[in-house]
Design a protein around this nucleic acid. Structure first.
Lengths: 145, 145
DNA sequence: AAAATTCATACTACTATAGTATGATTTGGA
DNA sequence: TCCAAATCATACTATAGTAGTATGAATTTT
């Protein structure tokens, strides 16, 4: 029941791009430096975000990435599902119609459904804008000791 | 973010032992048959439950297992944590004191904490007795078509 | 003594995770 | 025009986890 580094790094990349957004394109090297993530691994992760249109890229020298839309339009859930795949605790919940042979008599299915609902509720109700706000509050607080 | 077969089977085993509890000892073969789980794999899983004292065993011919305590005293969370390990979405939440280098400035930590809380809340509020009740309601309902 | 069972451990095949490595492609600037 | 810097695309590797299977020892009833 762990979230992998891929998903966690993806959220941090989105937050980094939001926090440092000036309209300019930001290099992977910069993000990797700030976030202490391997450049090459980060390239792969940001490439997923790029293909999904979550970030915009410019190639070549002076190229880089920037966040595509308003930070409030990205939930943590969206980013995790994109990079990690389904967040359901059991695979039979991934399909619209449960294909499991035992599903009609499966007494535990109810628990997994509740769990899926609880998980999705949390991650779908936090946006990158929320994280940005928390970050700014923390930084503001750190000045006044 | 998946729960493995080990944890899911363990919950089903506990429910099976609760549903079929007559005080007699039940053989792995029987449980495996009813639950459609490999006998040998089930042996390993039930051995974990046995070592933790969740079930009681008798060796030798006519041996078997029975549930040790009242089904209401076992939460799904207890069983999953025993068999799967921690249910926290990130490992830094496993320790009493967060050992992560970046934890003071980690903006995403809050989300993972909320997620852990939501997950634990669900699994710690369903007991084997609850699952048993649901099962009996379903069976009763199936007779009155 | 034999059969049935739990108990203990080793082994295997497969998949996922967390990267690293190599090189092609694109672009701005000297 | 050419070079350096960047993204883009894949292939590769090492490690760990998952989901079992296999073998046999220990225990107990018949």
């Amino acid at each position: 029941m762990r979230i992998s580094t891929k998903g966690r790094y993806a959220v941090r990349v989105m937050l980094d791009l939001a926090a440092n957004n000036t309209g300019e394109y930001i290099k992977v090297k910069e993000i990797a430096g700030r976030q202490e993530i391997s450049e090459k691994y980060l390239e792969q992760i940001i490439s997923i975000l790029n293909k999904a249109g979550y970030v915009k890229s410019v190639r070549g020298a002076q190229g880089g990435y920037r966040i595509a839309r308003d930070p409030a339009s990205y939930t943590v859930g969206m980013i995790l599902r994109l990079t990690e795949g389904s967040l359901n605790p059991v695979s039979c919940l991934d399909d619209d119609v449960n294909e499991c042979e035992r599903c009609d008599t499966c007494e535990t299915l109810g628990v997994w459904k509740e769990l899926a609902k609880a998980i999705n509720h949390v991650v779908d109700n936090v946006t990158i804008a929320d994280l940005l706000e928390r970050q700014q509050e923390r930084i503001a607080g750190s000045y006044t000791i």
